[in-house]
């Protein structure tokens, strides 16, 4: 009953979002740009939520997957590899998701096998930084520090960006939603609660952890690909910066870790905070953003989604 209602509401919200381009002028409205960016953040935050929130493996290497996704798109396009049109081409985008998956499996198996908790977090951070150096030192293949330049003349309107972003945000949320409701999700949560006991109950811990890590990498890579289409100039400082790890963690925890709506709320809220502080407190926008993060975490440790639990319990 409850489930049906919430699904109905979700569908309505999604339809409302999908109709925004018919109401607002996509190419003139800053609000639409805000939504586009928020969708990107929802996608990567949801990906992190699966790994960090549901499986309990705090990964600090998301920027590597994001950057790899963006670079894959750029390299496929510029080297004319798949001959499929490239600009918003599903084949290119899916490949941009799959390349990070390969990386996730290669580094995930040893890291997830050997390292736990904070060690895993720092290990992934190290991997991310190494990937960044490899791209900076990649010579003409990655364009080194200058990066790669895509032909920006193909741009016509923000509309495809908006809808693709919306699709990715929904896609990642739905993927995570169904994953955690399946047997896999059960296993993942068992791992988060107690790895040893999960293993003793016959859960192949490593397999599931790597699986979650790879799915997270896939979703992040997709978002990276979309961002590459938006940015056109792909360089290490833009797509491999640590913010692409820091922001999803921030948004996920602010929204509510290990809750399906947590990343959605967190991404919209934090992105809104960044946008508004940027407009109204230009000189000191990081102070305001930092202050807000501290306040939310200090007084609502369950994240924004926990806010209603607090109010409910007071009643």
């Amino acid at each position: 009953m409850e489930d049906k209602r919430s699904i109905l509401i979700s569908v309505l919200v999604v339809i409302a979002f999908a109709c925004v381009p018919f109401v607002l002028d996509v190419d003139k409205s800053y609000f639409v740009f805000f939504l586009f960016l928020s969708f990107c953040y929802v996608t990567i935050t949801q990906a992190w939520n699966l790994v960090g929130g549901y499986t309990g493996q705090i990964s600090l290497g998301q920027h590597a997957f994001f950057g790899l996704g963006a670079y894959t798109t750029a390299i496929i396009w510029l080297r004319d590899i798949t001959k499929t049109g490239y600009f918003f081409d599903p084949v290119t985008m899916i490949l941009s998701g799959l390349v990070p998956v390969v990386l996730a499996i290669i580094v995930g198996i040893p890291l997830l096998h050997r390292l736990k908790g904070d060690y895993f977090a720092i290990g992934t951070l190290g991997v991310g930084e190494i990937i960044k150096v490899l791209f900076v030192k990649g010579g003409s293949f990655t364009g080194a520090s200058d990066g790669l330049h895509l032909p920006s003349t193909v741009f016509e309107s923000m509309k495809p960006y908006y809808w693709t972003g919306l699709f990715l945000a929904i896609f990642s949320t739905v993927v995570v939603y169904f994953l955690i409701r399946s047997r896999i999700g059960l296993a993942l949560r068992a791992i988060r609660e107690d790895e040893t006991s999960a293993a003793s109950h016959g859960v192949h811990v490593l397999k599931y952890k790597v699986f979650a890590f790879a799915v997270g990498a896939f979703l992040t890579g997709l978002a990276g690909s979309l961002y590459a289409y938006y940015l056109f100039h792909i360089n290490p400082d833009a797509v491999l910066k640590l913010n692409w790890t820091l922001y999803p963690v921030l948004m996920c925890v602010i929204g509510g870790t290990g809750r399906i709506m947590g990343p959605v709320i967190g991404a919209f809220f934090m992105n809104g905070v960044f946008f508004l502080t940027d407009i109204y407190f230009v000189e000191i926008n990081p102070i305001m953003a930092g202050l807000l993060i501290i306040i939310v975490m200090r007084f609502m440790p369950g994240g924004l989604i926990g806010l209603k639990d607090m109010i409910m319990s007071r009643k």
Binding site: I58, L246, I254, P286, I287, L292, I294
Partner: peptide, 16 residues
């Protein structure tokens, strides 16, 4: 993660 993020917030704030 909560404490970690408070630290991140503190970092943003102090830098600026």
């Amino acid at each position: 993660n909560i404490s970690l993020l408070i630290a991140v917030g503190l970092m943003f704030l102090m830098e600026n």
